[in-house]
Every structure is written in structure tokens, then in C-alpha cells.
Amino acid sequence: MNTGLDTSFLTKLSKAKMPFGKYKDRYLVDLPEYYLVWYKNKGFPKGKLGEQLQSIYEIKLNGLEYLIRNIQKFS
């Protein structure tokens, strides 16, 4: 049975860091919520980083960041 859950995406997301700016080298999951909301309103960048930022935004919005933190601990 395929659940549609891509664990490799979540593992990579848990290790992804911001590549530039004020929050350079911070894990995406550690970015402040207001920063992610700003990107949501401005528009997420295109490509992989944009997908990751949008995913982190949705994860935080739904109170699920503990899942990413658990993956960080065990991977």
C-alpha cells in the first residue's frame, strides 16, 4: 500500500539549511514563523528551496514541526 509519504523528502527537509540572508546556515525548521509568512505573502522562490520553505510553512502552520525535529534526532 502506497501512503504517498516521501520519507526521503522529509529526511532532506530536516537537514536543509537556509543558503543566504539573515538566517544563513539555520535549519529551515528553525526559521521564525514571521519570516515564513513573509515568504508566503511575497511568494516562495522557485525550485527546491521554494518547495522546502513552503513545506516548512505548512508543517509549522499545522503544528507538526515536532515531526521534523524527531527526524533530525534520529537521522
Rank of each mutant, 00 (worst) to 15 (best):
K22S: 09
S14K: 00
L67M: 05
G63W: 13
Y27K: 05
K48I: 06
G63I: 11
L5P: 11
Y35S: 04
Q52H: 03
S55Q: 07
L67A: 03
P19M: 04
L36Q: 09
Q52T: 00
N2H: 04
K40Y: 14
I56H: 04
V37M: 15
Y34E: 10
K17Y: 00
Y35G: 04
F74M: 10
I59K: 02
G43L: 07
S14M: 03
T11W: 09
D30M: 01
M1F: 11
R69D: 05
M1Y: 07
D25T: 03
N41C: 13
K22W: 10
E33I: 06
K73Q: 12
S55T: 11
Y27T: 00
Q52L: 00
Y57N: 04
F20N: 06
Y35R: 10
G4W: 08
K46I: 07
Y66N: 15
D25R: 10
E58M: 12
T3H: 10
Y23L: 00
F9E: 07
M1G: 09
K24S: 01
K17M: 02
I68C: 01
G50A: 08
N62S: 09
N2Y: 04
V29W: 01
P32C: 02
F20M: 08
G63K: 10
E33W: 13
E51W: 13
K73I: 11
R26Y: 13
L49T: 03
G4V: 03
L61A: 13
D6W: 05
P45Q: 01
F20V: 03
G50S: 13
S14W: 02
P32R: 02
G4M: 02
S8V: 11
E58A: 11
S75V: 15
L10F: 13
G21A: 09
Y34W: 13
E51L: 12
S55E: 12
S55D: 08
L10N: 07
Q72L: 02
K12I: 04
Y35T: 11
K46W: 06
T11M: 14
L10A: 06
N70R: 12
Y66F: 15
G47E: 07
N41I: 13
S75L: 13
K22V: 08
Y27C: 06
Q52N: 04
N41L: 08
E33Y: 12
K12D: 15
Y23Q: 05
M1R: 09
K12L: 14
L67V: 15
P19W: 02
L67F: 14
Y39Q: 14
I56L: 05
E58N: 10
L67I: 03
V29F: 00
I59W: 01
K22L: 15
K15S: 14
E33N: 05
R69S: 04
E51H: 08
E33K: 10
K40A: 15
F44V: 03
E58K: 09
M18Q: 05
G47S: 01
L61Y: 12
Y66T: 06
W38I: 09
T3F: 12
R26S: 06
S75N: 12
N62G: 11
K42N: 14
K24Q: 11
G21M: 04
L13N: 07
Y35A: 04
D25Q: 03
S8R: 15
Y39I: 08
G4C: 01
I71T: 08
L61N: 14
N41E: 10
V29T: 12
E65M: 02
I68M: 08
W38T: 04
G47R: 07
P45A: 05
F20L: 08
L61Q: 09
T7D: 14
L28N: 04
I59P: 06
I68P: 02
K60V: 00
Y66M: 06
